[in-house]
């Protein structure tokens, strides 16, 4: 969504509404990343929005009625992993390998340093 000049002008003209009662949009950064990946893949034509909505509602249905809004993005990510596999963008084994690689990299990285893949091979 590129902000048009009219949009910018419109936004400038409107005082922002007090948002203190509305809470954070994302509870944690990973949720924002998961959200953004979904939109970016959609923008790139990797799936249609109804395909995404179907997958997400299927995940939420399986989770049952006990779920709360807090774990909503857990289901969101699970749906995105499934849809990415269904579309051949990645697969479960590859995701698991990569998850372990990030875990190893994190554990090998001193506090305060950015975590990069491959860090564990440099220090171990």
């Amino acid at each position: 969504m590129s902000a048009s000049d009219s949009e910018k002008a419109a936004l400038d003209a409107i005082p922002s509404i007090p948002r203190n009662t509305e809470g954070p949009v994302f509870a944690e950064p990973w949720q924002a990343q998961a959200f953004a990946m979904t939109v970016a893949l959609y923008d790139a034509g990797r799936f249609t929005w109804p395909e995404w909505a179907d997958m997400l509602s299927d995940e939420l249905r399986q989770a049952g009625a006990g779920q709360t809004g807090e774990d909503y993005y857990h289901h969101w990510l699970a749906a995105l992993e499934r849809l990415s596999s269904d579309k051949g963008l990645t697969d479960e084994a590859e995701l698991e390998d990569r998850r372990r690689a990030w875990d190893r990299a994190a554990r090998a990285t001193p506090h305060g340093s950015p975590i990069v893949l491959g860090a564990e091979t440099a220090t171990e």
Binding site: E28, W30, L77, E81, L95, E96, R98, R99, A106
Partner: peptide, 14 residues
């Protein structure tokens, strides 16, 4: 050393 939460790891992997 750092330890990343599970959801963070999964997002980074994907």
């Amino acid at each position: 050393h750092s330890e990343l939460p599970e959801m963070d790891l999964r997002v980074r992997a994907l």
